[in-house]
Write a protein that binds this DNA or RNA. Structure first.
Length: 320
DNA sequence: CGTTCATCCTGAGAGC
DNA sequence: TGCTCTCAGGATGAAC
């Protein structure tokens, strides 16, 4: 669920409350939360104990804490929130919430960091830090601009492209890649290997702002149109970040459990039947990539061509 | 290579 | 009240 703005809200909370402290005990309960950690949950917990938290970093929807074992080299505790993951700061003595799968307690006795994840699509893993393949030469930068990823990036994040809010993001390069793709433009926006951080909400919002239907083929759009679409993705996520992200319910909260307010500013996502803010036409919903897309049929006309807009009569699209 | 599909889970809400 | 069905801010790997 959490997309770039929501994950950045969480990262800032972790930076404010956890960076600079030393982990006393780590608890990782159940194999599932550590399924991306090859050596298993016990190894993960054991290696975290005694480590200092140096930094909280993020690319797209991936978050990682730079942790340094006593006398060791810094490494990355990679946290992906999946669809329902939360990182919560709470008193060590407080009763853990349901679906708490991992906890960091600190040697100062202060607030603990807990990972709560209802649907368990998220997880923790410990990875090496590697130089950012998308940002060569970063080390040559002068001291006046600190590098965005001062310790490098987590190894398991290197297949993810830069997100639109980081300096390494090269919009012109992404436009060139898009222009060659023969796929629906929404699919491309959701491809984390092309541009990261965009999920279903902000893809629909960017498409609405740009007046482009998500099933339009990338190659059918001009480079300026593609550039505008990316700019809208960037600005809508920046605006959402200003408001603390999008929270429809208590599942999407910051480290203190508070919701964001961008849901009130949504123009497309989830707005089926409501009048378009530009033209008053009722918004529509359709299936796309086994998910939902919301759009204005007037501002974002469907592409003509191979049918798919209205399911053929009698065609059973539901599985099972 | 690109695309579709199923899968990993729990819980909320709708409809009956 | 309770059952069944559908849906949900994501990522991944198999199969076509």
């Amino acid at each position: 669920m959490p997309e770039l703005p929501e994950v950045e809200v969480v990262r800032r909370g972790v930076a404010a409350h956890v960076v600079g402290r030393t982990i006393g005990r780590a608890t990782v309960s159940g194999a599932r939360v550590a399924r991306r950690h090859e050596a298993g949950p016990e190894d993960l917990a054991r290696r975290l104990a005694g480590s200092a938290v140096l930094h909280a970093d993020r690319r797209g929807k991936y978050l990682w804490l730079v942790v340094q074992p006593a006398g060791g080299v810094p490494e990355a505790l990679v946290v992906h929130l999946g669809m329902s993951g939360q990182l919560l700061v709470s008193p060590p003595e407080a009763q853990p919430a349901r679906h708490t799968h991992a906890t960091l307690d600190f040697d100062d006795g202060g607030p603990s960091l807990r990972f709560v994840d209802q649907r368990t699509f998220g997880g923790w893993s410990l990875r090496p830090l590697v130089p950012d393949p998308h940002d060569p030469g970063r080390t040559a930068e002068g001291p006046e601009r600190p590098p965005r990823h001062p310790y490098g990036i987590a190894a398991s994040v290197s297949h993810i492209a830069p997100d639109p809010l980081e300096p390494a993001f090269d919009r012109a390069a992404v436009v060139r890649s898009l222009k060659r793709r023969r796929s629906a433009v929404k699919r491309a926006l959701l491809d984390q290997g092309l541009v990261s951080g965009i999920g279903n909400i902000y893809a629909d919002e960017a498409l609405w702002r740009a007046g482009v239907h998500g099933r339009r083929e990338c190659t059918a759009l001009s480079k300026p149109a593609l550039a505008r679409l990316l700019e809208h993705a960037e600005t809508v996520m920046a605006e959402a970040l200003e408001l603390g992200g999008t929270s429809f319910d208590a599942l999407y909260v910051n480290v203190n459990g508070a919701s964001g307010y961008f849901d009130r500013s949504l123009n497309a996502y989830g707005q089926v039947g409501r009048p378009c803010a530009r033209c008053q036409t009722p918004l529509m919903r359709e299936d796309f990539m086994n998910r939902s897309s919301f759009f204005c049929p007037h501002c974002q006309p469907r592409p003509r061509g191979p049918r798919k807009a209205s399911p053929a009569p009698g065609a059973l699209r539901r599985r099972r």
